[in-house]
Design a protein around this nucleic acid. Sequence first.
DNA 1: ATCGAGTTTCCTGATT
DNA 2: CAATCAGGAAACTCGA
Length: 367
Amino acid sequence: MASSELCQILNNANANLYPSDPQPNLLNMMLRVPQLSELTFNNNNNINTTGPWHQVNPQSWSRQNVLEWIGYHVEDSRVDASLLNMAYCNMDGPMLCGMSRDDLMALFGAVFGDKLHHSLENLRARYASDLQENAVLSESEFDLLDNLLFPFMSVPGLGPLLETVVVQPTDRSEVEYSYLSEYRNQLTPESDHGYDSLSESLQSSHNGSLMNPSSPECSGSDSDPEYSVPKDSVKPEPVQAKKRGRGRPPKQAKGFDHIIESKKSKHAPRGTHLWEFIRDILIHPEQHQGLMKWEDRRDGVFKFLKSEAVAQLWGQKKKNSSMTYEKLSRAMRYYYKRDILERVDGRRLVYKFGKNSTGWRIEATGY
DNA sequence: ATCGAGTTTCCTGATT
DNA sequence: CAATCAGGAAACTCGA
């Protein structure tokens, strides 16, 4: 997709959203249609950029920083990004900091808006008490961010957009289409109500608050474990038992090859290793209630509460409907050799993070 | 084209 | 008995 087309989409989306009726005060300031020049950034020449958002005081954030920050929380909260309107994201740090909790909740919905507000307050407090505005993050913090930021690209809608808007390398058209086609391929006849594509979702008209809790669209996304485990969407009887996914081919063809197009994304996204997936479930318990729990938070000992559900989630993430705890646990056991996990003897479903795993420690997660 | 990493799948046997 | 653990072997994808 050419950048001009993207700009067109954004402009159309905003024109649809805000035809003529002027909005009051602060909101009004934000409803200006973003111009391409404001939304594109050169890789080597970060106009509008002051640095990574997590290293800069929110008061000094550029528009790009704000976009990245929102994108981070979209992924973190498993929000269906196709419902986000980019116009709401079109603000810089000072403007963002001028918004009240109510403003954010009005724009982003009660739950997500509140989360954004909470995050913003934390960041502001941190920088208020820390004069080193551009302090370098610890290794573990960087590691965590590195792992958490990359999954943007797997957020329906926002992923491709952020790739274009935020990263803007020389040619992303293939990547964008790869992502979009992947999302489409994930849709099944039963579940085909969440989103169609970035452009369609952006061009559709959402009135009022952009997050509508009652909307069925709010309850599912690719990385949205509890809400969209495709219990009944597994397609039986593949037309043809062709090679699929990683690993030794199953004896009996399973899965939904005919749904997933053979041409997959060339990228193996970072931050998608099994242990990272497990870690992220553990450090975001509010989003994965009852799946896993810490046995000893300090020492990194954790337990599977719903082993098969976690396996299903992992399978969902890897687009492998035949994943089981049996197989997942085999992969877990391979981590012992690499000191990513340590053995916990005599306790079923209990594992412990090893010295080569990162990002789970309290000081790194804040949880 | 090749290789290594990181799984995925299957399997057998042991343990809880 | 079912679920889980252990770990070997082979197959596979992806990125380098």
